[in-house]
Each structure stands twice: as structure tokens, then as C-alpha cells.
């Protein structure tokens, strides 16, 4: 299954702003996503922005990336400029609707 545009954009930004290789970057973001309960194929820009803010700095620090906070802030800005993207309905959508949400 293809990775989401939000995931691709975040990885491109991190790769451009750090000395991490492409495969390292993608693995780092995937680890953050796994810890947050997401996968790369279906995450939305809004959801990824939260993961980038709360979990990615720790992952980048572990890989010796300097100034992880500012890197993540730039990734968040890039994600916020993506706007809404048409996505498939999430598996939990039925249960959200059942609660009237």
C-alpha cells in the first residue's frame, strides 16, 4: 500500500533539514507513527502534525539530530500548508458515527 502524501512530505522535509539518509528518515518517522498507533499509508496531515510535535523530537534526538525542535516545527509548518486531502474513511468511522460524532 502506498504511503500517504503527508508522510512523504514530512520525510522529504526531515531529509532536507538533517543529515539523515532517506531510509533512516523514513524509518524514524515510521517508528514515531508506530508508537502513536498510526501507519504511514493512512495518516492525515493533521494527525501527522500532532505526532511530529509530540513524538518525533524524541526520535530525532535519539539519532543525534541537532535542534530537533526546530526541524519538527518546520515539518509541522509544511504539513499545515498541505490543506485538506481527500482520504479513505478510517476503519473506526462507523463507531465514531454511532456516537453521533
Amino acid at each position: 500500500m502506498a504511503d500517504s502524501p503527508a508522510f512523504e512530505l514530512a520525510c522529504e522535509r526531515i531529509e532536507a533539514d538533517t543529515n539523515l539518509e532517506r531510509i533512516e528518515t523514513r524509518g524514524t518517522v515510521r517508528l514515531a507513527l508506530k508508537a502513536a498507533g498510526f501507519n504511514a499509508s493512512s495518516i492525515s496531515p493533521d494527525q501527522l502534525a500532532v505526532v511530529v510535535e509530540k513524538l518525533l523530537p524524541g526520535e530525532l534526538t535519539r539519532r543525534g539530530v541537532p535542534n530537533p525542535g526546530s526541524v519538527c516545527a518546520r515539518v509541522k509548518d509544511a504539513l499545515s500548508s498541505m490543506g485538506a486531502i481527500a482520504q479513505e474513511e478510517a476503519p473506526e468511522a462507523l463507531f465514531v458515527r454511532m456516537g453521533g460524532g
Binding site: A36, G37, V50, F95, G99, G101
Partner: peptide, 12 residues
């Protein structure tokens, strides 16, 4: 797991 980030409702 998403609940820890406030990205999921416990009821769901």
C-alpha cells in the same frame, strides 16, 4: 495508543 496523543476517543 492514539489516545495518549488525544487523537482517539476512548469510547470509539
Amino acid at each position: 495508543r492514539r489516545e495518549a496523543l488525544g487523537l482517539s476517543d476512548p469510547v470509539v
